[in-house]
């Protein structure tokens, strides 16, 4: 890991580029291209909006019968991050479950995968608007409404003033003709993209989101974590938009 330098592109053991390292309120973070946030000093891995149980909830409520593989897929990607980083603590920044009922009735293979990931490390479930009261007894880890990291609060939804690290909005940025999940970094707020598989996105240019992080930057989740400014520049390189794909 290239944890010491500021604002670097990190590399994992295999040399694949994975993240963007930056300092914020006295803490050094790496925005991972998976959409997770890594605090190397304390070995915390922070993810937002896993929405486990989403397809099950939709089916239960008479909605679409989506492929019932979202939980496995979300945990597979989270498992890749855990394998690469070996965190001491995993923080789920709220909406870890699509609703409280889903938290209590996880599919057996999803529950087993979760238990395996949590084995040997601490796990903190911050509650969100989808899962305000959940706590299935079978779930590993602890539950809290908020947590502290240095002078920064970890909570589900950003609150006036901050500084806080949150999720909730599922931010995406338009880049090269496509919407990309993105971590948003403003002066007072750091907002994570949704990590869950079946999650839509809210454009960072939506007023509800932009005012929280105005003047800051976004880190788009691609094959590597790409930093981009949040106020659009006056002029941009002209060129035809990609008409393909």
């Amino acid at each position: 890991m290239t944890g010491d330098a500021q604002g670097t592109v990190g590399e994992d053991a295999q040399g694949a580029m994975t993240g963007f390292v930056f300092d914020w309120h006295g803490l050094t973070f790496e925005a991972r291209c998976s959409g997770a946030l890594w605090w190397p000093q304390g070995r915390w891995l922070i993810v937002a909006d896993l929405h486990l149980g989403k397809s099950e909830r939709m089916a239960r409520r008479g909605g679409a019968l989506l492929p019932p593989y979202d939980g496995l897929e979300t945990l597979r990607r989270l498992g890749d991050e855990i394998a690469a980083l070996d965190p001491a603590l995993v923080v789920s920044l709220g909406d870890g479950f699509d609703d409280d009922a889903a938290a209590g009735a996880l599919d057996a293979d999803v529950a087993a995968a979760l238990a395996a990931l949590a084995d040997g490390r601490d796990w903190l479930w911050v509650s969100g608007n989808h899962d305000p009261a959940h706590h299935g007894t079978a779930l590993p880890g602890r539950r809290a409404d908020e947590a502290r990291l240095g002078g920064v609060t970890l909570r589900h939804v950003a609150e006036a003033g901050g500084p806080d690290i949150s999720g909730h909005y599922h931010p995406v940025v338009p880049l090269a003709g496509a919407r990309r999940r993105a971590l948003l970094v403003g002066r007072d707020h750091l907002i994570l993209p949704a990590f869950g598989s079946y999650t839509g996105g809210l454009s960072v240019h939506d007023p509800a989101l932009l005012h929280l992080v105005e003047g800051g930057f976004a880190v788009a989740c691609l094959h590597r974590a790409l930093p981009i400014p949040l106020q659009p520049p006056r002029r941009r390189r002209a060129g035809p938009p990609l008409s393909f794909g």
Partner: peptide, 14 residues
């Protein structure tokens, strides 16, 4: 760069 300000710095040989 200041600690408080979110200013990204050079990416090393990306």
């Amino acid at each position: 760069m200041a600690d408080e300000a979110p200013v990204p710095v050079r990416t090393r040989k990306a």
